[in-house]
Design a binder for these strands. Structure first.
Length: 134
DNA sequence: CTTCTCACA
DNA sequence: TGTGAGGA
């Protein structure tokens, strides 16, 4: 199938699909016309890519992890022994990132609290800076 | 009509 | 990533 069909069947933009190829996540064949020709299994591969992306993995990590994953229909299963190690390392990376974010939030909370009487909203308030027109 | 590459708001 | 140009 060509990129348009894969895009429709996965809900992923053609732009993203081409990007995945650039990142070595997909390697569709090429016709003489230059058009990409995707395999039927790529539909599932794209879904797996989205899952891994949602898990916070970088496209680089996904590229090296994808070939070591087996998809039993509804769940991704590690197929290589060293895979779980890589995944654990990324989990640790996420833990660190989370801790950093919590610390950053604490700092903001302290500053906000220092505002005292000021309209202190702990919740998220919409404040997107308006772009200067002109 | 569909896809391709490339550059940029 | 989105969008649009310019071409096949």
């Amino acid at each position: 199938m060509r990129i348009g069909e894969l895009a429709r069947r996965t809900g992923i933009s053609e732009r993203a699909l081409r990007y995945y190829e650039e990142q070595q996540l997909l390697r569709p064949e090429r016709r003489r016309s230059g058009y990409r020709e995707y395999a039927e299994g790529d539909v599932r591969t794209v879904r797996n890519i989205r899952t891994l992306l949602a898990a916070g993995l970088s496209t680089y990590t996904i590229a090296e992890v994808l070939p070591c994953m087996t998809d039993d229909g509804d769940a991704l299963v590690p197929a290589c022994p060293e895979l779980t190690t890589v995944l654990s390392q990324d989990r640790d990376r996420l833990t660190t990132a989370i801790d950093d974010l919590l610390a950053a939030r604490d700092i903001l909370d302290a500053i906000i609290a220092a505002g005292g009487s000021e309209t202190a909203q702990t919740a998220s308030d919409p404040a997107p800076a308006a772009a200067p027109a002109g």
